[in-house]
Every structure is written in structure tokens, then in C-alpha cells.
């Protein structure tokens, strides 16, 4: 039981992070390898503000806002100028960004772990002597749930969302129809980075704390989650996140922490051999 809730709570974070990856992938066909480093950078900003003002929520807001800004700036200053003749160029630039951000954070804050406080108690409620989940876990579920619903509303119910989808799907046609395509791309990056920041704020208190490399492993798990779910599917990424979270928790609990990456690899092989475009791919849409 404890393992289930532990897994779901981490899975929710992976889901949010995978969602951020999917947002950018759908908009620009780039897998944003810098997502983890960007999230850590904004979390540093958030916790600095929290420490200075004593208010967790102010810091939280600052982190999300920093995510919006960092995402937009990254798109405007760097990603926009990437030559798209090869999809790998975007990957390499993103990896370059990772190094710059991690080096920069190390220079400013040093390579020590800094505490990342949770806004709610992490003591679990116990039912009949079995620890289930904590207030913080509930907060994680709520935050991720709200984000998923908001994004779904944005993309299906608003004009802006529609324009973003159009800009990503058919940039040239959209431009002819008067959609500000480049603005939509910037907005897409900003939103994705903000969701990434949220995931960072949710996962860091449960791990070792703030560190320039703190999200490296979260990134790997979340990318796996996004691939399992299907990179073109938002719902897929959420479910993929939960599946990976549960798998990691069960395997670490019953078989040992060392085996967990092997289990993830097996999951990927099984899923991808069955459905090469992830669980929620629209079948055959991607073949030539």
C-alpha cells in the first residue's frame, strides 16, 4: 500500500514533467534536454525568494514565473536560431544549455545540496498502522491535476490554445491565416518551462535537495514516461508518468533499488515493441 502511494506521488511529478516535454515536442519537434536544468534554475530562484521573504508561496510563484520567463527567453534567444536542417542540432543546443545552466548554478550557488522545504508536512497519515500518504503528496496530486485540467482547457476551449495547435501543426498555413506563429512558439516554450518548474518544485523536497544536477534523474524517468505514453499525447504522458512511478516504487521495494533501471528498460522494450509510437500513438499516422 505504502509503495503504491509512494509510486503514484512520484509518478504524478514524472507526469507533469513529461507533459512539459510533450508540450515542446508537439510545438517544435524538439525534445528539450535542457528541461531538467531549466527547472532546477527556476527552483533555485524560488527557494532563494522563499528564504529571503519567509514565504513559501511567494517563492513558489516566483519559480513558476521564472519558468515562464526562462522558457520564453530560451526560445527567443537560442532555440529560434537553431538550424533545423537536422533534428539533432536542436538536441545538441539543448545539451549545451544544460552545461551552461549547470555551470552557472554551480558558480552562483556552489555544488552543495541546499534544503528544499515542503509547504506541507511530509508525515504520512496512517490507517491501521500502515502509512499511506502525506499532506504533501495530496498537494502534489492536486497541483498536477489542476495543471493537466488547465492545459486541456487551454488547448481545447480557448482561441489562444487553438492558435498554438495550429502554429505547431501547420506553421505556414497558420501564418497565412494571420496567426502569430513565432509568438505562439514562444508562448509554448514559456508554458512548458513553467510546467517543468512546477514539477521541479514538487519533486525537489522529496529528494536530496537543491543541486545543479538535481533533476538529471527525474529527466530520464520523465522522458521514459513520455516515450511510453507517446510523445504526441498529453494523456499518454500523464499515464506514462504514473506507470513509471509505480514501477520504480514496486521494483525498488520488492527487488531492490539496483534493479529499477533494468525494469524501466524492460518496460520500454515491451511497450515500444508492441506500439512503436508509445501507448497512445495514433496508429500508422507517422509512417511515411
Amino acid at each position: 500500500m505504502f509503495l503504491t502511494f509512494d509510486g503514484l506521488s512520484r509518478g504524478a511529478v514524472y507526469a507533469a514533467f513529461a507533459l512539459a516535454l510533450v508540450l515542446i515536442w508537439r510545438a517544435t519537434r524538439i525534445v528539450n534536454f535542457a528541461q531538467g536544468a531549466m527547472a532546477v534554475a527556476t527552483a533555485y530562484a524560488g527557494f532563494e525568494v522563499s528564504a529571503a521573504t519567509g514565504s513559501y508561496w511567494l517563492g513558489f510563484a516566483v519559480a513558476i514565473a521564472a519558468g515562464l520567463i526562462l522558457g520564453a527567453v530560451t526560445e527567443r534567444v537560442v532555440m529560434r536560431f537553431v538550424d533545423h536542417s537536422s533534428p539533432l542540432n536542436g538536441v545538441v543546443v539543448a545539451l549545451g544549455l544544460v552545461l551552461v545552466i549547470q555551470g552557472g548554478l554551480g558558480m552562483i550557488f556552489g555544488s552543495e545540496f541546499r534544503p528544499a522545504e515542503a509547504p506541507f508536512s511530509r508525515d504520512a497519515f496512517t490507517v491501521g498502522g500502515v502509512a499511506l500518504l502525506s499532506r504533501f503528496d495530496l498537494f502534489v496530486f492536486a497541483a498536477v491535476g489542476i495543471v493537466v485540467v488547465l492545459l486541456a482547457l487551454l488547448f481545447t476551449r480557448t482561441h489562444t490554445g487553438l492558435r498554438m495547435r495550429a502554429a505547431a501543426f501547420a506553421p505556414d498555413v497558420s501564418r497565412l491565416l494571420g496567426v502569430n506563429v513565432s509568438g505562439m512558439l514562444t508562448l509554448g516554450w514559456a508554458l512548458a518551462a513553467a510546467v517543468g518548474s512546477l514539477a521541479g518544485m514538487l519533486v525537489l523536497p522529496t529528494e536530496l535537495g537543491l543541486h545543479p544536477n538535481a533533476m538529471d534523474i527525474v529527466f530520464v524517468s520523465s522522458f521514459t514516461a513520455a516515450v511510453v505514453g507517446g510523445l504526441d499525447s498529453a494523456i499518454g504522458s500523464v499515464l506514462g508518468g504514473l506507470i513509471v512511478g509505480l514501477l520504480l516504487s514496486y521494483v525498488s521495494g520488492y527487488l531492490g533499488a539496483t534493479v529499477a533501471p533494468i525494469a524501466v528498460l524492460i518496460l520500454l522494450v515491451v511497450v515500444l515493441l508492441g506500439r512503436p509510437g508509445g501507448l497512445f500513438s495514433r496508429s500508422a499516422a507517422r509512417t511515411v
Binding site: D83, L99, G103, M107
Partner: peptide
């Protein structure tokens, strides 16, 4: 950390200037 950041900047600049 500085070598790391420099390395990253080099990567980005090379990629943008000479794709």
C-alpha cells in the same frame, strides 16, 4: 563550473554559427 559553462557556450555558438 566555469569550464563547464564555457564548454556549453561553445557548443551553442558553434551549433548556431555552423550548423
Amino acid at each position: 563550473n566555469l569550464p563547464l559553462a564555457l564548454f556549453g557556450v561553445t557548443l551553442i555558438v558553434v551549433m548556431l554559427a555552423a550548423p
